[in-house]
Design a protein around this nucleic acid. Sequence first.
DNA 1: GACCGAGCTTACAGCGCTGTAAAATTAGTG
DNA 2: CACTAATTTTACAGCGCTGTAAGCTCGGTC
Lengths: 343, 343
Amino acid sequence: MKKVRLADVAEVAGVSMKTVSNVVHDYPHVTPEMRRKVQQAIDELGYKPNLTARRLATGKTGMIALAIPEIDHPYFSELSRYIAEEASRLGYRVIVEQTLSNPAAERAVLNDRETGLVDGVIFHPVRMQSMEVARLQRDVPVVLLGESTMPLTADHVMIDNVVAAQEGVRHLVGEGRRRIAFLGVVSGDTTGSTDQRLLGYQQGLVDAKMPLDPGLVLSVSDFTPEESARAVGDALASGIAFDGLICRDDRFATGALSALRQAGVQVPRDVAVVGWDDTELGRWASPPLTSIAPDKRELAATALELLLERIGGYHGVGRHRIVSHALTIRESAPLGAPVLQPN
Amino acid sequence: MKKVRLADVAEVAGVSMKTVSNVVHDYPHVTPEMRRKVQQAIDELGYKPNLTARRLATGKTGMIALAIPEIDHPYFSELSRYIAEEASRLGYRVIVEQTLSNPAAERAVLNDRETGLVDGVIFHPVRMQSMEVARLQRDVPVVLLGESTMPLTADHVMIDNVVAAQEGVRHLVGEGRRRIAFLGVVSGDTTGSTDQRLLGYQQGLVDAKMPLDPGLVLSVSDFTPEESARAVGDALASGIAFDGLICRDDRFATGALSALRQAGVQVPRDVAVVGWDDTELGRWASPPLTSIAPDKRELAATALELLLERIGGYHGVGRHRIVSHALTIRESAPLGAPVLQPN
DNA sequence: GACCGAGCTTACAGCGCTGTAAAATTAGTG
DNA sequence: CACTAATTTTACAGCGCTGTAAGCTCGGTC
């Protein structure tokens, strides 16, 4: 089966290549008869346009890259899904780029465009610093995700982490919790996500006129549930007492649940747990996690909207968009749960 | 910042385009002096090759498509990760194509190649029938994943589901379970995965000289944990008794755990549960799931190996490769657990 | 010192499509 | 029916790169 080219169709239909091209693209100024003749030749030969050639001619690839640390992290895989769906609706296809939090891989992301692979990039950086993004980004259309401090040259979409964390604390306080811990400070984490969430946590305590106890801020040595479980286990073993726990993300919360269970601590009776990201992992944890839920659909739609504007030629200063979030209440920190020591 | 072309570099370096191209590609027969001169021009101008043009000239895209039903299903997101990593090692990039189990989307997958988008396709079909794959596939290099009955024209990678299910049953029997149920028949599921797993389950019971009770085969109305939970809840409510449960996948198992907990049934004491796919979701379920673990790394590596052979020109008959699996033992069906009624 | 072959380098024709501008056709007008 | 305006169709030059085949160098050989 030989490759069928536009020229072949043109020859069979007895018209010029450009007319065939016009038919393929549903260009309006084509007489019905022409259209019929050409369409017949297309069907007969089974013509499929060669996208690579089209791209070379137009300079548009119809693709965008989504660069995330790990595709199998529940938050990112769910986000990928929404971005892929939205992109597809807008006529774009998505290349998923796994950076594995590797600085070199992150830098490479911004090269994809220069190299003609994609029209734009949606990028959730983990290691890359603001300055570096600014330096490398130049004229590549980029929309950044996540909470790093971002350069003014790129667009940026995020939720209000500080407010969200405050809401989480307020919920726990409202349920009578008095010693609320924060889980998830990771050394070497340069993203700022954790910082903002921690900040909101502290602000929430201040709002509730509760003391800040540095001992209630728990560190984890790596971004895995295993390490999270270890951190919580260690804290319990060393006698740190808390009745509420806000976690940096659902994976950490999952590890925490495991450690609490191991230690015979009941959730939510003894400790109420709030996760972050509202992923399937948390939805089916035991007990199911109350979680701060970024509106992932809105996040995806907003990111694509901004990116397409940039691809379309917008060159203005970077825009910052806050998308909405909610607190999804489940059993790990329910409403109206009995508390051991209400006061 | 204007686009820098090969020709620009050639001009600055005072050599031909082809020589620049040779330097870019590390072609061996280039004198050191030439190479230096050209490299300097490349650095000076910041030249980046245009991949689209390269593709048009060579006919190779350096991309493969991975077509899966849902990117945020834990099994598929984990598999995607390994495929992306392995592909990257081999110099390929991956386009993840979400079919959402949509027949039209599945058919479109096989067009990607014809359209010059990718060099080959790794495809996990859900709706598409064997015959249809054979008809559409023609000369597109395709490697199929999953357990559908597959045409002889395409390569195929899977684990031995029948044997794996038998092993799951044997494990439960060895732990003293006597009424073992199977969860996960979904009406309209044409993939054959479930069939094979069910077959292995039945074979396992026969091996153990245990009766086959059709009432112990539980149907689920959709591929979600929610529906799985409902199915198990209904079964319990209608008085179906079982002390062991093999689930079609970890998501179903997760839903089952939830329903069992809801009903006050203890796992593993009252019912031992075995999942399938060994995903993070099951790893952090409560209790953590014993699960049949396909070797996803090997699966990814094998699929890519076969695909690259086809891309490289192999046109032989379809090959079937079985990759290894194991039974990962965790608390939901541990070794040496106390059983209510040992006999 | 003319000749040979191996090693380098070059010119140029595509790869398949689209944008542009010009050519051909049709419709409209007095 | 000639003439202009509007519409449809065409020819062709790129898009940026690579493969091919031919051309050039240069050290070695008799």
